[in-house]
Amino acid sequence: MITLTHFLIVGACLFSIGLYAVMARRNAIMVLVGIELMINAAVLNLVAFGRYDSEHYGGQAFALFAIVLAAASVAVALAIILNVYRHYKTINPEDINHLKD
């Protein structure tokens, strides 16, 4: 029997993996993948909780909006990363540090 707890644990694992990918900062695309994992962890949570909200379906509606906005922000991020690559010939965030204290 799969209960709410199972969904929450999978969500928490996804979130942690995503956060690790972001913190490792090897490559800008990998950071984006990490962000996507974190958003999907949240979406999973929302849908799982939404089962108990059969009056408004707030969780499901929120999940749909979150998916759409995640796609939009990835599109914008990829366009910006492409521009970075044209100037720097690398997309490793560690190497792109003209701006610093």
């Binding site: 914008v76 910006i80 521009n83 970075v84 100037h87 720097y88 540090n97």
Partner: peptide, 8 residues
């Protein structure tokens, strides 16, 4: 572009 990438 660097500023934009860090921001996004």
């Amino acid at each position: 572009t660097e500023a934009a990438m860090k921001y996004v």
